[in-house]
């Protein structure tokens, strides 16, 4: 039997830790925070595949998050479908939109790609706001039902916590497999130099489109999980600032790092809760933290802290 690799061990440890936390804590507030961390981790991971590994920036990723949330909301609340039927619909919807938008957009590079995805994100969030009869408009969509499977409803915080983190874990393992596969190597080749990659025989356009679609699917799934947890959605959750926040999670956590996504999502979810003590200074402090982290640890906190730790240990050893 093949010896399990380090990532698998880390995932098992992580799963055990997550399960222990889920079983031990009774505080619904913590569970709620952890659920949001899980959803944000999924978002950050989805964008990290696109941005960290394939090097394609997206400033409109929250659009797919919103597409997932609104598709399931409309199907399950307005038309009364089971959420489990709405789930594939949300995924197909995100994939279709990603395909249509991705084909022309991914031809762009650099800031142009950033602006293209930003424009797409803005259009989607305006559609959520203005398509009043379907989406409930600016004041939001109410009455999304809880998830249910064979008579068991995921309506408690604990059950939902396990659901979210099981999904996150699944995508951790899946991402690792993709990254370590031929596809992953191709993606990194695209990141390092698109022309070189295509000269090596990689179909860069197709590869980028595929990772974009996968990324959109994951974001849409995160939207699905969000909608059935909060029971309410409104356009600003999926607007421009949300897209920027996802990018920030990826960069702060560490690009091209699966664990970095977890770290970035955790930090950016908890930080506002901590900064609450600063009251009116909160916004200022938040901006300052972002800047300082990027100035001094441009590789992201995960790598940055490890590097600091290792260099201090080296000094200590000498």
């Amino acid at each position: 039997m093949r010896k399990p690799d380090k990532h698998t061990i880390a995932c098992i440890l992580f799963a055990a830790g997550a399960a222990a936390v889920g079983l031990m804590t009774d505080d619904a507030y913590y569970l709620q925070v952890l659920i949001f961390i899980g959803i944000n981790t999924l978002l950050a991971l989805s964008l990290n595949l696109l941005m960290g590994y394939a090097g394609q920036i997206s400033l409109g990723h929250a659009a797919f998050y919103g597409i997932g949330a609104y598709t399931t909301a409309v199907l399950s609340a307005t038309y009364g479908f089971s959420p489990w039927l709405a789930l594939p619909a949300a995924i197909v919807m995100a994939m279709a939109v990603a395909y249509i938008v991705g084909r022309p957009t991914l031809r762009l590079t650099g800031y142009y790609l950033g602006m293209g995805t930003l424009g797409f994100g803005m259009i989607v969030s305006i559609v959520f706001r203005e398509w009043h009869s379907v989406t409930g408009g600016a004041s939001g969509f109410v009455g999304i039902p809880p998830l249910e499977i064979a008579g068991f409803a995921f309506d408690t915080d604990r059950s939902y916590y396990f659901l979210v983190w099981a999904v996150v874990l699944f995508f951790f393992l899946l991402s690792r497999r993709i990254i370590d596969s031929r596809v992953g190597r191709a993606l990194r080749a695209i990141h390092d130099g698109e022309h070189a990659a295509s000269a090596m025989g990689i179909d860069t356009a197709r590869m980028k489109l595929h990772i974009f679609i996968l990324s959109a699917t994951m974001a849409s799934l995160a939207g699905f999980l969000y909608a059935h947890q909060v029971y309410f959605i409104s356009p600003e959750t999926f607007g421009f600032m949300a897209s920027i926040k996802i990018v920030t999670m990826v960069v702060i956590g560490g690009m091209a790092s699966i664990w970095g996504s977890l770290f970035g999502a955790t930090l950016l979810t908890i930080l506002p809760e901590w900064l609450h003590a600063f009251a009116d200074y909160e916004m200022m402090v938040y901006g300052l933290i972002l800047m300082l982290v990027m100035i001094f640890l441009p590789q992201g906190l995960t790598r940055g802290i490890i590097d600091l730790y290792e260099s201090s240990r080296k000094k200590h050893d000498q």
């Binding site: 941005m51 920036i57 920027i244 990018v247 920030t248 916004m283 901006g287 972002l290 990027m294 100035i295």
Partner: peptide, 30 residues
Amino acid sequence: AIRTVRRPEPIVLIIITVGASIFLRGTAML
């Protein structure tokens, strides 16, 4: 902020300027 960046990659600089925008907005609010 910009010159002290250790690795001036575009994405890092984007996040720094986004951070600066939040910081400036917060300061202006005060």
